[in-house]
């Protein structure tokens, strides 16, 4: 691997295959590990259903409650900004959609690049703010361990390298693209074994929370 083209081909080839395989295997293991633990049956006469409140909670938790927002605006805003930036760049950038189309057999319309570009900037700014927050907010600082910073780096690198590659700020381009891919591969490989799993498990978590509350007749 002595030059950027070899590097790019490796990252587009072997490395990507390995990464996506680890990602998928890990993902399935993690989900099975969770679900296999089961839920105790509840015999108390329910006050409400589980299904709708569960679904509703999955959706409503996407919005912060007013009280928390007032007390921790930075956490909320930074979180939002980077998530939105990340999701737009990930899901609505045409080259990414082409990758999804190849993987899943279907795609969706994307956004013009300047908008995606702005989203990427938002993502970067949001992530930097989130890091600053993590380093300064006493609660987050106390909670955070090595994994939290690792996860931050794993999230930040694809965004950063993607941005640099798009703007040709790393040359030659095969190197830039290879670094971008490598960062994504690192992310994919470590994804199932870190907090990044929240991307998927949060749906489970919200569901359980909403369903358990729903039984008792409260919307959580």
């Amino acid at each position: 691997m002595n030059d950027s083209m070899d590097f790019l081909l490796w990252t587009r080839g072997t490395a990507f295959d390995v990464a996506i395989a680890i990602f998928i295997i890990g993902l399935i293991i993690r989900l099975f590990e969770i679900v296999s633990l089961g839920r105790e049956r509840t015999l108390a006469e329910p006050k409400g259903s589980e299904f709708l409140p569960g679904v509703k909670t999955i959706l409503t938790r996407t919005l912060p409650d007013g009280g928390t927002f007032k007390r921790q605006p930075l956490t909320v805003i930074a979180g939002y900004v980077f998530h939105v930036g990340l999701l737009i760049t990930l899901l609505l950038f045409i080259p990414h959609i082409e990758l999804f189309r190849e993987t899943f057999g279907f795609g969706w319309p994307g956004l013009p690049n300047p908008i995606v570009d702005a989203a990427a900037v938002l993502g970067v700014v949001g992530l930097l703010a989130a890091l600053w927050n993590r380093l300064t907010n006493p609660v987050m600082k106390m909670l955070s361990g090595g994994e939290d910073y690792l996860v931050w780096v794993l999230t930040f690198l694809p965004l950063l390298t993607g941005y640099l590659a798009y703007h040709r700020m790393i040359n030659p381009y095969p190197l830039a693209m290879g670094l971008h891919l490598l960062s994504i591969e690192l992310l994919l490989i470590l994804f199932p074994f870190t907090k990044l799993m929240h991307t998927f498990t949060l749906f489970l978590a919200r569901w359980y929370n909403g369903a358990m509350s729903g039984r008792r007749g409260v919307q959580s």
């Binding site: 993690r30 590990e33 969770i34 679900v35 296999s36 633990l37 089961g38 839920r39 105790e40 912060p64 928390t68 921790q72 956490t75 909320v76 979180g79 907010n137 609660v139 987050m140 909670l143 955070s144 361990g145 939290d148 996860v151 907090k195 799993m197 929240h198 498990t201 949060l202 489970l204 978590a205 359980y208 929370n209 358990m212």
Partner: peptide, 17 residues
């Protein structure tokens, strides 16, 4: 530890909210 507990811990990102 049951599935909800595992899902909850898996999901926590230490946001501190």
């Amino acid at each position: 530890v049951d599935a909800p507990v595992a899902a909850f811990f898996s999901s926590c990102v230490n946001c501190g909210m």
